[in-house]
Write a protein that binds this DNA or RNA. Structure first.
Lengths: 140, 140
DNA sequence: TTAATCCCCACTAACTTGGTGGAGATTTAG
DNA sequence: CTAAATCTCCACCAAGTTAGTGGGGATTAA
């Protein structure tokens, strides 16, 4: 039930890309890594995963970097986590009546969690981010 | 987000104890393990954990075994999972605005899952079990 | 042509998972 | 009192996961 560093890094990187989205320029691994205090060599692998799953696209060479593959309102948190965490589908069937009952309860709980993540898009997070930031500015 | 064997074993053992609850007799590790196809030496450790957290009580010696420490309606699935999975509280504080936003979204999702587990008591599972079993009987 | 950048593959240390093994303490039955 | 059944505790282990690090190669802009 805990958020792994891996997933948190991926979510942060995607949020960072979403915040920079609209400028059209790609964002580099190093830049993202520095902003969010993520080891860059590790983030590299996560971004490669995200690219293979079609959530971001990359541009190689000088002034290259990463861009969101879709608009921020069309990317929700569940797909980010699922793509990075690997959705292992090969679970063995329950072999007792009790096991199937326990599994059902667990599945219901998991679905509830997934629905919440599905409800959060990168755009929503960006809007929340902007509101927070302007509030902070107000106090300064 | 996946149910570990460890947690599933604990949930199954607790459900088994709940099904046998009322007879007043303790149930042995071996018996539970056989019914649910759990390695008995491993289950032993899980039951010890559950006992230390006050969810079950044990009786040593011949004809000893385990009993629920509370009535089945007063034990919900969340506490079983939390006690077995170990609720590690020492998470580092988010150091960026983005990190706190991501954490909040994740926490909301986790709370949704926990609420579902909290809503399921052992008694509810037992009732569901009895309904299923009588339905099966009907077909035979 | 060169510097910046992504791409890919391999390696690792520490930790977790899912167990197994063995000796000891306690209780009931006979 | 003794023996068998049962829980208790501590240690050990193999395989997998996590969170990285390292080194070189391919591609592109200036």
């Amino acid at each position: 039930m805990e958020l792994s560093a891996k997933s948190e890094y991926a979510l942060l990187a995607m949020l960072q890309l979403a915040l920079g989205h609209g400028k059209g320029e790609p964002m580099q691994i190093k830049e993202i890594a520095q902003c969010q205090s993520i080891p860059d060599r590790y983030l590299e692998q996560l971004l490669a995963d995200l690219r293979r799953h079609g959530l971001v696209k990359s541009q190689r060479g000088a002034r290259g970097g990463y861009l969101l593959a879709r608009e921020p309102f069309a990317i929700h948190l569940l797909e980010i986590v699922q793509c990075i965490e690997g959705q292992d589908e090969n679970e063995t069937a329950p072999n007792t009546l009790e096991a199937s009952i326990v599994r059902e309860a667990w599945d219901e709980s998991r679905r509830a969690a997934e629905q919440v993540l599905k409800g959060h898009t990168l755009q929503k997070l960006c809007e929340l981010h902007d509101r927070r930031q302007s509030t902070v500015m107000y106090y300064i």
